Computed example of a mutant assay.
Amino acid sequence: MKPAIFELSPNDAYERQRNGALLVDVREDGERAAGMAEGSIGVSRSRLETDTAAWLPDPAAEILLICAAGARSLQCAGVLQGLGYEHVYSVNGGTKAWQTAGLPMTESTADADFLERYSRHLRLPEMGLDGQRKLAAARVALIGAGGLGSPAALYLAAAGIGTIRLIDDDVVDRSNLQRQVVHRDADVGAPKVESACRTLHALNPHVAIDAQRTRLSAANVERLLAGHDVVIDGSDNFSTRYLLNDACVRLGVPMVYGAVQGFDGQVSVFWPAHEGGSCYRCLFPEPPSPEFAPSCSEAGVLGVLPGVIGLLQATEAVKLILGIGESLSGTLLRFDALGMRFDRLRLERDPVCPRCGEGVKQADYMDLPATCAAH
């Protein structure tokens, strides 16, 4: 029969620590930034369980495990016990109880607002303190404060992206409010970038919103996009989308594409500099003739659909900044809201693509007729 795992009160654990027991904080790195039980060593539960001998070379040593509230340390103690460690204990109530008992703690290495605001990020092994600081240092250019840009901007700001350059020349119309959730009824008639700034700063005052009330053009596209880690395409016309693509190819910046119409949406990452990646012109070499492009005012869209696609775009941007997971580079993800289905299509780089093809010289940017951009 497997022996029970003993739980110790913080005071008992402290006395054992003073008498030579090893205290191990198994929280994630980001959580430990708020301070640790003094004298403890920090190693996340997953790392400790993966490479136990490197951290705990003596199975006969007295080991005390502590986490946030006691659950993870108790589970980890069970794993170590199964590996042959003979004297493993869990601190009941974790670091919270340790602090409540007035026992010594190390100083916090980050400010309280940061630690509380991003606490759920800091608990993720893939994110942690270093990942959150990467987000804080990142620069994202978001083109369009409309249906796609609204949810993307809200979640990027909430996630703690350091600087968001918001590019849009339009004003808020009452018909926008059904899907452009960054704006309010009181904002009707106001420039979209100003309305969005107010909402985003109210959500997260620590994020810098660089509002650019202008339309992207051949004359300004490279200047506006240079120096950013990711570009998000929330545009609604082909002229802007092709300019974005061409500038991102030249700058080597990933472009997170999204499009919606009716009940259908799609999203991808166009990044030919990435292995297996392609650009928007590999899929659509040239824009359609104006007569085949629907009028922006006539092309209806389910109000919640841009929310789905915009959030997928924000997710891709965060993953690209952190360098985690598998991006949609080289893949077109299609969403059917009526059937609630996702389909994935593999995209191949076109060797004769007019923009990123082999041996193609970078051409000058060109302003195209501003026809509506339905996918």
Rank of each mutant, 00 (worst) to 15 (best):
Q313D: 08
G144V: 07
D173V: 00
R281N: 05
L80A: 08
A13V: 07
L224F: 09
A299K: 06
A247V: 02
A337D: 07
L48S: 10
S327G: 13
T100W: 00
V256K: 07
G30H: 11
L225H: 10
M340N: 14
L225T: 09
A196N: 11
S46E: 13
G146K: 10
E126M: 08
R250A: 15
P294S: 07
Q81I: 00
E326L: 01
V221H: 03
G262H: 04
D246A: 07
H87M: 00
V269D: 09
L148E: 11
L74C: 00
E275Q: 13
K96A: 12
Y365H: 12
P125D: 05
F114K: 03
L74V: 00
F284L: 11
E316A: 06
D246I: 00
Q313N: 08
Q99H: 04
G93H: 05
L244M: 08
G78H: 13
H274W: 05
I309T: 09
D111R: 04
Q132W: 09
G325T: 07
G276P: 08
Y365D: 04
G262N: 10
A158E: 12
L122V: 11
A60W: 00
H228F: 02
R344H: 13
A373R: 02
L251I: 06
L251A: 09
T95N: 06
M366T: 13
Y155V: 02
V304M: 12
I321K: 10
F270V: 07
N11M: 06
V88W: 07
A317S: 13
C296M: 04
L83W: 01
S40W: 04
D29R: 10
V308P: 12
D51N: 12
V171C: 14
G94K: 03
E316R: 06
G277D: 07
Q362R: 12
S90T: 03
S329R: 03
G300F: 02
A373G: 06
L312Q: 15
I41H: 02
P272Q: 01
P287N: 04
H375T: 02
Q81S: 14
G357D: 05
A374V: 10
G102C: 05
R32C: 14
G102W: 01
